[in-house]
Simulated assay, not measured.
Amino acid sequence: MSIDSGLRKELAKFCSSKRTYRSDFSPTMPTHWSPQHVRHPDTGEAFTDPGAWRFVKDLLEAGHPVEVITLDKPPGKKGYVLKCKGYSSEIIYIKLQILSGFVIGRSFHVSVVREKQQ
């Protein structure tokens, strides 16, 4: 399931201002927001926190695919996942959740894909 243009614009708007984005960890809404451990696909340099939010905003504004998921924590709430090409052969995994008046970054890290053992 993808998202409509209104939700896409709302997410991009929230990602564009430090007042409307967060990545705080809590036991009820755990995060793995680690942009400093992710290299920008174009430069190979590590992301800064503001740079990660700009990157997500740019992806949303460019129409990058967004998958709607059901979160485990908090149970039943919606999450929005973007997966994009990272540096070299890496995949960047991004997960967002909308709360009242802001977006929380739940994940921003290199995707760990386990290869099948033969």
Rank of each mutant, 00 (worst) to 15 (best):
I3V: 14
S5F: 01
S5N: 12
R8A: 07
L11P: 06
A12F: 04
C15P: 02
C15K: 02
S16I: 06
S17V: 00
R19Y: 11
R19G: 02
T20Q: 10
R22D: 14
R22P: 00
R22E: 14
D24W: 04
F25L: 08
S26V: 05
T28L: 12
T28W: 10
P30M: 12
P30T: 10
T31A: 09
H32N: 14
W33N: 11
W33K: 03
P35A: 07
H37G: 01
V38Q: 01
R39H: 10
H40V: 08
H40S: 04
D42A: 13
F47I: 03
T48A: 05
G51R: 08
G51S: 09
G51K: 09
R54A: 13
F55K: 07
F55V: 05
D58V: 10
L59I: 00
L60F: 06
G63L: 03
H64Q: 12
P65Q: 07
E67Q: 15
I69T: 13
I69S: 01
I69M: 09
L71D: 09
K73A: 13
P74E: 10
P74G: 08
P75C: 04
K77G: 00
K78T: 05
G79V: 06
L82Q: 09
C84W: 02
K85T: 12
K85N: 12
G86I: 03
S88H: 08
S89Q: 12
Y93V: 00
I94Q: 04
L96S: 05
L96R: 01
L96A: 07
S100R: 14
S100W: 01
F102D: 02
V103K: 05
I104M: 11
I104G: 04
G105V: 06
G105D: 08
F108T: 02
V110T: 14
R114C: 01
R114K: 15
Q117L: 11
